[in-house]
Design a binder for these strands. Structure first.
Lengths: 330, 330
DNA sequence: TTGAAAGCGGTACCAA
DNA sequence: TTGGTACCGCTTTCAA
């Protein structure tokens, strides 16, 4: 592949001159420009950004680590953030951990070697190993989805505790007295712990009851189905279920229907995330709108501010939400 | 940020020696290794992969261009391909055109400057400008989703014509006699043209009729709704609709229901893609299973083979599909 | 207006 | 076993 040197030789000028022409610098004789451009054309020269990056120690690269991309939350977030970075001329290096948290550290290190300017980490857990890896990263890291502020890590989170509380409120308002929670792994503070605690708080505060159960499954329709089936057997009297995600809720709906129960009547339920699925499923699923694209954008902007000013004024950004009432909890 | 030189000075040895220690090369005195490692620790040295990349002219970088990531097809494909690249130690540089085809060329050029080793392009159109940009790319390009073989561009495609034909077959078998097509922009050969032509061929061959209409809208539920509403007004007698994607079909279902028509009875319909939505919507949507994750993987493997052997034995890979019969076309 | 040379942070060959 | 040095491809003084 042709280099500056090749072009220079071909045009019969020096490297410096070619460099000047390429970067449209001031003070090159038009005739020389012409000569050089012909040479560039002739040998199909393409700038070597690697060499430039090395020389300037600037890569315009942003690392993004995700647990997977095929979920409403992830794909919307990635669309959001990529737009922001795009406008700033930053390129996105994408790493997919496939839900294997151990790989987070691996990618954090790899990204630092590649000299990314900053890293956006979509975390489902924030264990000590990960925190440590973040701490030793030279590139600033913004965490999305979990609260890193206790470790002084700038984060964008959803208002998970309050969502749980609202869910409790709504279920109580709808007349539920036996309410359970379908969550995920305990390590997921945001999705499992916070949402559960919010619910618990609402139930104790507003109706002097405690959640009937706290099931911990996976992020899938399948898992929601299994969970709901099991809980239904164990607590035949339950009349309200708060599901940590819409997909889990969809599984729960299917499980209820399999038992001849119409969701929204004897048993009310709701999910979180406003996945397109929620609008489409029948009966339609009451849920909370989480602005995932905005969260991605916000994380990106936060990181950019961190890069530009050396520090961000916001150390923790809590995204709001809206309750969307549909058929499963009218 | 500390460099080899800094470490060398700190350890009182030469760059070469530090390099040897870092790369665990053979023939360094244990005491020296110890010294160097202490120095590395002390100044927090991190390998500069940019410098290595320049020296070795090898980046381990793969460029991936997508029109957007928040769709079932895209997100599943990206999950698939990232797994394959991961295993080979390749990193993914992700570009999001946001459905703006003009940006494809921009990214192709940018990626070449960044010296990616290869490019995976998810295309919704393959216009002459794009073809030209692909041709001048030094990094090999594999196209996914559109057939580039006429231009001698290796591609992974879905069997769009045959899907259209099968859809026609199924609708006819279900008794439909007035069948229309809800497509997308004409530039999308695969999704709009091929699927339509397959349908047309089935109808003319098997029932000596022609499609009632060929509507061209967008890739969204909303657009499907609008389209179905309009077509229903124009062709009140229609009894079968083939939708280019599941999301369009979902919109169509909602439009039918808004008119008091039960999809699957007087009007049968089916989509393409086996989006999770199709399983969840009510009545459930008959569709064709496209293995998007496998398509992503295949594209990745094809590209890797191209990189390793200099040329691929496969120049066009056609992915199969399965018909999934559900309530909208029993 | 142009060229020579140093340097970004590594690797690799040759000498010592 | 170690160090010196050239070089990867580009930018950027400094001189000419």
């Amino acid at each position: 592949m042709a280099s500056l040197n090749d072009v220079a030789r071909l045009a019969g000028v020096s490297k410096s001159t070619v460099s000047r022409v390429i970067n449209q610098e001031y003070g090159v004789k038009p005739a020389t420009i012409e000569k050089v451009n012909r040479a560039i054309e002739q040998c199909g020269y393409v700038v070597n950004q690697i060499a430039k990056d090395l020389k300037s120690s600037k890569t315009n690269l942003i690392g993004v680590i995700v647990p997977r991309v095929s979920s409403h939350a992830m794909s919307a977030s990635v669309d959001g953030l990529s737009h922001v970075f795009d406008q700033k001329g930053k390129q996105v290096l994408l790493a997919n951990t496939r839900q294997d948290d151990a790989r987070i550290c691996h990618y954090l290190d790899l990204f630092n070697q590649k000299r990314v300017e900053g890293i956006l980490l979509f975390a489902s857990t924030l264990n000590p190993t990960v925190v440590q890896a973040i701490k030793r990263s030279s590139a600033p890291v913004v965490v999305i989805g979990q609260d890193g502020s206790p470790y002084n890590i700038p984060s964008v989170i959803h208002d998970d505790y309050r969502v749980g509380f609202c869910a409790g409120e709504q279920l109580i308002k709808a007349g539920c007295q036996q309410v359970g929670f379908l969550g995920v792994q305990a390590e997921d503070i945001a999705v499992d712990q916070q949402r559960y605690q919010g619910l618990e708080s609402a139930l104790t505060t507003l109706s002097q009851t405690a959640p009937l159960f706290h099931y911990q499954g996976q992020f899938s329709i399948q898992s929601g189905y299994v969970a709901m089936t099991a809980m239904l057997a164990q607590y035949p009297d339950l009349d309200g279920v708060f599901c940590a995600t819409d997909r889990i809720a969809i599984g729960a709906i299917q499980a209820l229907q399999a038992q001849g129960i119409t969701p929204g009547q004897a048993v009310k339920l709701m999910g979180v995330g406003d996945d397109e699925l929620a609008q489409v499923v029948s009966p339609s699923l009451s849920t909370f709108n989480y602005a995932f694209d905005a969260a991605g954008e916000s994380g990106a902007k936060m990181l950019l501010e961190l890069l530009e000013t050396g520090q961000s004024h916001v150390s923790k950004l809590v995204m709001g939400f809206n309750y969307i009432s549909r058929a499963t909890c009218p």
